[in-house]
Design a protein around this nucleic acid. Structure first.
Lengths: 149, 149
DNA sequence: CCAGCCGATGAGAACGGGTATCATTATCGC
DNA sequence: GCGATAATGATACCCGTTCTCATCGGCTGG
């Protein structure tokens, strides 16, 4: 990239270009989300912002996330618990999937070239135009699998 | 298997053993679900049963599905649209994942040994005790990818 | 076969994440 | 600054799922 811009700066500029306006809520949400590597829920973002004194409404959080999603700036992650999570889309080199601990709810990212290759081949050989894929592994994490002595 | 029992018969017997009772609603739900190869939602099951004159309540549908899930008799499938779907767990030879068309909502099952192998290896090499995995491919199906001339 | 116990059931209320509405606020071009 | 208009925040609403509770009905001891 020519400019050493952060994801947050890129995202804000992109959103701004689409409507011609900017706003405080949007900026706060994007900047906070930009500090995350892995998925966060809308409520977590909202709570964190309110906790630091922001007055953003939950609606603005969702609106911002929707806009980012429309522009492909975030990945929408569904871990199967009915809560939508989001993470900055930083490109292939950061592409990853998630492990979810059924016991403590911990989320752990992982990446695997062989898995991606298999998915790639699958997408190519199918009759579909695949443009996204989700993989979620579920089980017990290191802490939770330990014998409860 | 020694007895040529259907999945529905096995499931009903298992549920019965756990509580010592049986009931009409449960039987209707299990028998209908047993006729499906791929995922169905609770509402779809409920609607189908009511349409044929059954008086089952939606709560019984959910209760039955929860019991089946606890016993590992169904797979819970999450396609990311906020609706929980279920399909009979018939063992490894029927194991599959899903393609979801973003346009028309069509769901298509698929199976791929290489994908399973990659997931298997991943699960083994991680610090987690993985006991389930979900894979969802999203995009446009054959019908929807056609050029809109 | 009958009575009674207790799990199963169904109706509807409650819950919760996500969306829609709307009056107000704040940004941008002038 | 001024006006047009997008952005914002509070809140009502939607809908899938869960909870509650009075009732029903299958099972067991007699």
């Amino acid at each position: 990239m020519v400019h050493a811009e952060t994801w947050a700066e890129l995202a804000l500029e992109r959103l701004r270009r689409e409507s011609g306006r900017s706003g405080t809520a949007r900026r706060e949400v994007v900047e906070l989300l930009g500090r995350h590597d892995c998925c966060v829920s809308a409520l977590e973002l909202h709570d964190a912002l309110r906790a630091r004194g922001s007055r953003v409404g939950i609606a603005s959080v969702y609106r911002t996330l929707e806009g980012l999603d429309r522009s492909g700036l975030v990945e929408r992650v569904d871990l199967g618990d009915g809560i939508a999570r989001f993470e900055p889309a930083r490109g292939d080199e950061h592409h990853h999937h998630h492990f979810l601990c059924d016991d403590c709810g911990k989320v752990e990212p992982f990446a695997d070239p062989a898995l991606e290759a298999a998915l790639e081949r699958l997408a190519g050989g199918s009759g579909f135009a695949v443009d996204a894929h989700d993989v979620v592994l579920r089980g017990a994490c290191g802490d939770c699998r330990a014998p409860v002595t």
